[in-house]
Simulated assay, not measured.
Amino acid sequence: MRSGLILAGGRSTRFGGGEKSLKLVGGRRMICRVVDALCPVVDELVISVRDEQQKDLLFPFISGYYFAYDEVQGIGPLSGILSGLKRLKGDYAVVVACDMPLINSAAVRLLFEKALGHDAAVPRHEDGLIEPLHAVYQRGPMLRAVEESIAAGESKISAPLKRLKDVVYVPDDAVRAVDPELETFLNVNRAEDMEKLRLKK
């Protein structure tokens, strides 16, 4: 069973406020595009949000999916990963951010294939940067790694990776085979990033 976790609990401070995940990209809400990309690849989907108030904002656009709420405040995405992994049932889960509206279903499927038999499959770019929020994890080991990282006072999204014993790093060339422009990794951090998307779509 393959699971999907979309992290939507960020406060969009760099974007300038407002519910970033509901911004329109090509006429569709950003989070809806992410949901549509994951649904063909996963058997279940959970949306991680800050609280009930945020769920109420998103629910009209993505009803029919499970929601998970942050258990720990002030530690960023790790809190969403913690609550989301606890809610999921699959052996492997793809974890993505809600601000990646060009996520490629084939790229996600590739990561699931690469992760099989390992603790994780994480994209790594030619400059060495990794994509922990566009990666597939074996749920059990990753949940334990996240819990241990939080207990140790670590909040960096890469912290749990150091606690996993068997991580497969997937190079750009492998992803380009299914997404030549690597658009799947494009994320919207600031309002000006929306212009990049308009040029692409």
Rank of each mutant, 00 (worst) to 15 (best):
L116W: 15
H118I: 09
H134V: 11
D43F: 01
S149L: 06
E192N: 12
L7D: 07
L164W: 06
V167N: 02
R163K: 15
A68E: 03
A151L: 08
Y92N: 14
K114C: 10
D70H: 13
P40T: 09
P171Y: 02
V42H: 02
L57S: 05
P171I: 05
R11W: 05
M1R: 14
V167H: 04
S12N: 13
P132N: 10
G140L: 11
I130Q: 14
A106E: 14
V122H: 00
I6K: 03
V46T: 05
S12I: 00
D166K: 12
L161P: 06
I103P: 04
K201G: 11
D43V: 00
E183S: 14
N189G: 14
A106D: 10
V188H: 09
R144Y: 11
S158T: 15
L143I: 01
F185N: 02
E52Q: 15
V49I: 03
G76Q: 04
S21F: 04
G153D: 05
Y137F: 15
L82E: 03
V188D: 01
V168C: 01
F112S: 05
P132K: 12
G80P: 08
E154R: 13
N187F: 15
L182C: 13
V35H: 04
R33C: 06
V170G: 02
R28K: 15
Y169A: 00
L38Y: 10
L197P: 08
S12L: 03
E44M: 03
L143A: 01
N104M: 09
Y137Q: 01
I47L: 10
I157C: 10
P132T: 08
R144A: 11
L58F: 00
K200M: 11
P132Q: 10
K114Y: 03
E195K: 12
A106Q: 11
E148D: 14
K89P: 14
S105K: 04
R28Y: 01
E195D: 13
K162M: 11
A174L: 07
E154K: 14
L45Y: 04
Y66M: 15
S21R: 12
L182A: 09
L78W: 00
F112Y: 06
E195L: 07
Y169C: 00
R109K: 08
I157P: 09
G9E: 07
G153I: 11
G64D: 14
R50D: 15
A120T: 03
Y137P: 09
L116H: 10
K20Y: 08
E154G: 14
S105N: 01
L85A: 10
A145P: 02
G16F: 06
K196G: 06
A37W: 04
I75C: 07
L102S: 07
T184R: 10
P40Y: 09
G128A: 05
H118D: 07
E71F: 04
L129T: 07
G10S: 12
Y92E: 14
R124F: 01
S158Q: 15
K156E: 13
S83W: 13
G16V: 11
L102H: 03
S79Y: 12
E148A: 15
E113K: 13
P101T: 02
D99G: 05
L197K: 07
Y169R: 00
A151W: 09
F67K: 00
D173H: 09
P77T: 09
E154S: 13
K162Q: 04
V122M: 03
D51A: 06
R87H: 09
A97Q: 13
E126M: 05
